[in-house]
Amino acid sequence: MSSTMKAAVYHGTRDIRIEQVPIPHPRDGEVVIAVRRSGICGTDATEWTAGPVMVPVHHRHPASGHLGPMIPGHEFVGEVVDGSAELPAGTLVAAGAGVWCGRCDRCAEGRTNICRNYYTLGLNAPGGLAEYVAAPARMLRTVPAGLPLDAAAMAQPLAVGLHAARRAGARHGDSVVIIGAGAIGTFTLAGLSHLIHVDITVVDLPGPKLDRAAKLGAARTLSAHDDVVAAVLELTGGRGADVVIEASGAPGQFETALRMVTTGGRVLAVGLPKDKPAVDMFSLALREVTIDSTVAHVCDDDLGVALDILAEGILGPLLLDSVISLDDLVTRGLEPLAASRVDGKILVAPTHRNW
């Protein structure tokens, strides 16, 4: 095997270069993976258009220790090539990307996603937009037999959606509204449908995203062009929804979520708006509405379940947009993603082999 590999390297705003870099060597507890697919998401697009935000190009990351240009890619699946007794060479694995210490108070609580020493491969340390990546074995899960690589590559973002679904706090029979049917909204919908029986309404612009939501368990869909607050109030007999999940990050939608939730209900912030929302604290306090947030996922709880859901064979084909080469990462990946011209998941195949 050559000592170098092809990789995308992030240098700064709108500056990602395809370079030859050294193949990583595993540290204690790590294995080396030949990357077969690596997904990109809105976070990657934001880093490219407006970053560095999370990539430690100019300041050393306190947990990962990385400083300088870095390989992005936090959604990847591949084949172990330098393994361990538990994960021998040839094993297909999906990565959780988040690395936790296992020693702090948050880890002791099982909240490893907010570990005091947390960092993420592809955001704070070299990731999977390369031919090879070194990753801790404990954040990897074996890909179920027969699960296509294109679907397995969605395990990490689906795990994020599962964690969001858990954080929503919905109870059996609740009315739930999800604002936003893009990738993260869809993954949250899939997670919610898997975990609990609730009545789900999905809001977005008319088109394929709402069609997909209907196929994945939404009881109904609403066009964002309409007065969705009035529609939700009518559907719930004037009460409002028990839980509203804001997964779009679009301007004004967090405020919309607060207006359509019932007294004593819950709003979960998933989408990240560019501008700070204007919150009506008077109404919020008088109605005792709970606002919650969510980040990443708990690997031990969510990644294996995500692979099981994908193995059912429904979600992956509905979400896949395209598979592109590493050379096309910017023109066919980040540019359309940043311009909101993508409804599903774009995956990158770092090698030209027919995997």
Rank of each mutant, 00 (worst) to 15 (best):
V289S: 03
N113G: 00
L216Y: 00
T91E: 08
V81Q: 07
T46H: 15
N354C: 01
P62E: 11
E234N: 13
A241K: 13
G264V: 05
C101I: 06
V55N: 12
A50L: 10
G344L: 12
S322H: 14
A338S: 11
V21L: 07
G238D: 03
G83C: 14
A213R: 13
Q253D: 06
L233S: 12
A339K: 14
G252A: 01
D105V: 09
R220H: 07
L149A: 08
V261I: 10
I324W: 00
A50R: 01
L284T: 08
A125F: 14
E86S: 04
R259W: 10
C115E: 05
V31F: 09
A183C: 01
V160M: 00
L235V: 02
K209C: 05
T351D: 05
G128D: 05
I71S: 03
S325V: 00
A97D: 12
V176E: 02
V232C: 10
T221R: 08
V35P: 09
Q156V: 07
L318Q: 03
S3Q: 15
A231D: 07
L149C: 08
V198Q: 03
A349S: 12
T188C: 11
P24K: 13
S293E: 11
A285Q: 01
D292L: 09
L222Q: 04
G42L: 11
A296E: 09
D328S: 12
A285C: 07
G265I: 07
R220K: 07
V203I: 08
R341A: 06
A181H: 10
A153Y: 09
S283V: 00
I184V: 14
A97G: 05
E335P: 00
H163R: 10
G240Q: 06
I324N: 02
P157Y: 05
R220G: 07
V243Q: 11
L140M: 05
C101W: 01
V176W: 12
T46Y: 00
R341G: 12
V289E: 02
L140W: 03
A125V: 07
I196T: 03
R239I: 13
G78W: 13
